[in-house]
Design a protein around this nucleic acid. Structure first.
Length: 824
RNA sequence: GCCCGGAUGGCGGAAUUGGUAGACGCAAGGGACUUAAAAUCCCUCGUCCGCGAGGAUGUGCCGGUUCGAUCCCGGCUCCGGGCACCA
């Protein structure tokens, strides 16, 4: 080995070695226990950033550690390669999204390889490759056959000037991001996945994923939003039909004084009286002009319009005017709300504005609400009033009783409702997976037949950003004969949401070269589920929920057997600098390439692992990077300078060690224990590295290096040190391993186990407290009995004056820890 | 508003089950080496009092449980995140 540590040379050497030897290639081996480690795959945006470095460094430590622990480790990497930025780049720079994406992938692949991550590159996949997305089309059609994919109309953001659909993030202040025109709501026919079918199961399993962070599970539970209540039907005056509402507050039904419908409610138009028609039409149109973000803003003023119609409260017979209200959402519940102004804040504000009567049906304890003087709705539990037979009951008890009563009267029933909505997957974009559907005027919606799959994305399209999806303007793509009747028909030109691709990529990694279908069942069964998934908290809901849903769908379709895709989840914190997330606009971006050029990949990895535990935000520090680099230099120097003393060493005879040699060996084995625990149980890489640093400090200070009887123990210390470093700084560790004269690739050697006897202390420091205050420390043999501890503690010089002349009330002895003397 | 987190030296953080608070690193100060600087090595480093031995105090604030609380309980303050007209 060289005297001087030159990371650039060392790293290039070992990266070449691993690549040539295919050190990290894995195959399914039933004899070995598998471990599937996965980091969220990147979007090929151009170059990797510090967040990637951190995410993938964390993952690589785990992968390398588990590999050394003897697991058959699947550690793949690929590209979330479809998406809008590629299309934006095409519009702006006149280059094809495919070319842009492939260039980025090539560059970023080089960057990842330069970091020395131990991926099985033979399993690399890109979701924009037809060999990937063709299977997704097949899955889509299977879902369609089962009714899990279906079409319905839905609203999208629409720029009338560009004549194109906008994603939510392309709407800025209610205007188009490119031309600033006012964004309108446009109703389009779109494809949906029936995720709501799985709401109950998705919710249920949140209680069976102990390896997930609690806050992610909480977010998912909130997102699914299960609530218990009743459906109640209010008959419409002068008609057969009624309005059905969902409510969780059936205890307030006697206080319902009007009805609110979503402006989009199908009944809205039909029940409007001629006198109110003009006002209602104006209101509905106004709502259609508001974009979705404003529509659901908190501070939006409650507004509505009376339809001229009335319905009847089925319990009181009370006549209730039917309004349309801007805050009622068609997507939730039934799109209709029974309005109880006395006990719902929104209804209260609405009633005050339109001078609708307020009727109190729940009184708080020790108070007497008067509708005339109330300034806010009372929403807590109280005593029922004005509610006939339920008067005097506690409102929370009445909830149950009323549910039964409504059912008995035939006007309502108990029900549950979910906040979760079906997943709209249609995107009016080019750079995505084409939805394999054909529309025929005669046969209707026709799935693309199996033998015609895949529907490949045509290359020769023009990108202007105007006039909608480029696919829709490509006649050669759109016009096809109907597979059933042969008549000229049209292809679906929408592509799938990119979240669809990321919902099953982890399954395809199990068998990326499989040509017989989406998944090779046998291989998928061997590897699934993912044992450890690592990625950013920003995916807590959407990606992680969709992937769970998709796994369940694929289970139903017979592709996999598992219920859940990810057993353990680690959500790593952000990389921040000067207290803020790194961003171009803040000018606080640290480019990984510059860092790697200057210090090498090992230093970059070491710092991002040492500076903070993985789930916390990491504050970037240039001086901290220097420190990590200094540490590696110290390790290098230590090994290099100790080398001459271990050359001739004989076999290690632990029982013959004494004094400093024995103490050194104790440090070594304690460190192995500590690092193993931190990696295995806790993922506390920062404390593992701290322990290794302490061991290096100990080794550097070890004086009798030249004593031949210490040669063997020094050899053990150095080889252990290098192995412990291997998951964190693999290149330097490989080189040092070779320098020590060891054979084989370090990345593939076995992780050491510690010797409990060697790690055991002979003496312990015991703390002596008087009345809970630390007064002295005593050193005792490990085997000291409680009685010995007690008398030793009482006898020390510092303790005696504090105890003399006072009565000892109690002595608490905690073996191995402390003695506390309580005097009075 | 609701639901989660979190608060420890100048800074990042450690303390794994209620038992030595501040490991490890960074920064800072002092010293060695050098013509000099860089690099490297050694020492000091929570605060206050004391020449010193040592003492007092200290984990956001107030209180409680306990022989003993960064850790458990109750009440607050501040910071971060998620959800937010969800009927």
């Amino acid at each position: 080995m060289q005297e001087k540590y030159i990371p650039q040379i060392v790293e290039a050497k070992w990266q070449k070695h691993w690549e040539a030897a295919k050190s990290f290639k894995v195959t399914e081996d039933p004899e070995k226990e598998k471990y599937y480690l996965l980091e969220m795959f990147p979007y090929p945006s151009g170059r990797i950033h510090m967040g990637h470095v951190r995410n993938y460094s964390i993952g690589d430590v785990v992968a390398r550690f588990k590999r050394m622990r003897g697991y058959n480790v699947l550690h793949p990497m690929g590209w979330d390669a479809f998406g809008m930025p590629a299309e934006n780049a095409a519009i702006q720079n006149n280059c094809h999204p495919a070319a842009w994406t492939h260039e980025n992938m090539a560059y970023m692949r080089g960057q990842l390889k330069r970091m020395g991550f131990s991926y099985d590159w033979d399993r690399e996949l890109a979701t924009c490759d037809v060999e990937y997305y063709r299977w997704e089309q097949k899955i889509f059609l299977q879902m369609y056959q089962r009714g899990l994919a279906y079409k319905k109309t839905s609203f999208v953001n629409w720029c009338p000037n560009c004549a194109t659909v906008l994603a939510n993030e392309q709407v800025e202040d209610g205007g188009c991001w490119r031309c600033d025109s006012d964004v309108k709501q446009k109703e389009l026919d779109q494809w949906f996945f029936r995720i709501t079918n799985y709401a109950e199961e998705l919710l249920d399993w949140t209680n069976r994923l102990p390896g997930w962070p609690e806050r992610v599970l909480t977010m998912q539970r909130n997102w699914i939003g299960k609530s218990f209540g009743c459906e109640i039907t209010f008959p419409l005056e002068g008609g057969e039909e009624g309005i059905t509402v969902f409510t969780t507050r059936q205890d307030t039904v006697y206080g319902a004084t009007f009805m609110s419908l979503a402006p989009e409610h199908p009944l809205a138009c039909r029940i409007t009286t001629s006198g109110q028609r003009e006002a209602v039409t104006a209101f509905v149109e106004k709502i259609a002009r508001t974009d979705r973000v404003c529509r659901t803003a908190e501070d939006l003023e409650k507004e509505g319009v009376w339809t001229g119609a009335f319905c009847t409260n089925p319990l009181t017979g009370c006549r209730m005017p039917v309004y349309l209200a801007n805050f009622v959402l068609m997507e939730y519940g039934t799109g209709a709300v029974m309005a109880v102004p006395a006990h719902d804040q929104r209804d209260f504000e609405f009633a005050r504005k339109y001078e609708i009567p307020v009727l109190v049906v729940i009184q708080p304890d020790g108070e007497n609400l008067d509708p005339a003087t109330m300034t806010a709705a009372y929403t807590e539990v109280g005593t029922m009033v004005n509610s006939e037979r339920f008067n005097g009951m506690k409102s929370d008890v009445a909830k149950e009783a009323l549910a039964d009563h409504l059912a008995g009267e035939g006007v309502g029933k108990k029900t549950v409702n979910f906040r979760l909505r079906d997943w709209g997957i249609s995107r009016q974009r080019y750079w995505g997976n084409p939805i394999p559907i054909i529309y025929c005027d005669i046969c209707g919606v026709v799935p693309v037949p199996d033998q015609d799959l895949p529907v490949t994305l045509p290359r020769d399209v023009a990108f202007t950003g105007e006039g909608g999806s480029p696919l829709a303007r490509l006649d050669a793509f759109v016009t096809v004969p109907c597979p059933l009747c042969g008549a000229s028909s049209r292809r679906e030109t929408d592509t799938m949401d990119t979240f669809v691709q990321s919902s099953w990529y982890f399954l395809r990694y199990c068998c990326p070269d499989f040509t017989g279908g989406a998944l090779d069942k046998e291989r998928a069964e061997y590897w699934m589920s993912v044992d450890q998934y690592i990625g950013g908290i920003e995916h807590a809901v959407l990606h992680l929920l969709y992937a769970r849903f998709f796994t369940k769908v694929l289970r139903e379709l017979g592709y996999v057997k598992v219920d859940e895709p990810f057993i353990n989840l680690l959500t790593q914190g952000m990389v921040i600098k000067d207290g803020a997330k790194m961003s171009k606009s803040k000018g606080n971006v640290v480019d990984p390439s510059g860092l790697v050029e200057r210090y090498g990949a090992d230093t970059a990895r070491l710092f991002s692992l040492f500076a903070a535990p993985p789930e916390k935000d990491l504050e970037w520090s240039d001086q901290g990077v220097e420190g990590s680099y200094r540490f590696l230099n110290r390790v290098w120097k230590l090994v290099f300078e100790t080398l001459p003393f271990i050359k001739e060493s004989s076999a290690l005879q632990p029982e013959k060690l004494t004094g400093e040699g024995k103490a050194l060996r104790r440090v070594v084995h304690k460190t192995i224990r500590k690092v193993t625990d931190d990696l295995e149980e806790r993922f506390h890489f920062n404390t593992a590295i701290a322990a290794i640093m302490e061991m290096v400090n100990g080794l550097s200070a070890f004086e009798p290096k030249g004593d031949p009887k210490n040669g063997a123990v020094l050899r053990e210390a150095l080889t252990s040190l290098v192995i412990l470093l291997a998951p964190f700084v693999p290149h330097a560790a490989e080189e040092l391993w070779e320098g020590l004269g060891e054979v084989g690739t370090l990345s593939l050697v076995s992780w050491p186990s510690y010797d409990p006897d060697a790690a055991a202390d002979e003496e312990l420091t015991i703390v002596v407290q008087v009345n809970g205050k630390l007064r002295d420390r005593i050193t005792v043999p490990v085997a000291a009995t409680e009685e010995e501890l007690r008398s030793a503690a009482l006898a020390t010089e510092r303790v005696r004056p504090l105890v003399d002349g006072k009565s000892i009330r109690k002595v608490i002895v905690v073996p191995g820890k402390l003695v506390n003397i309580v005097v009075g």
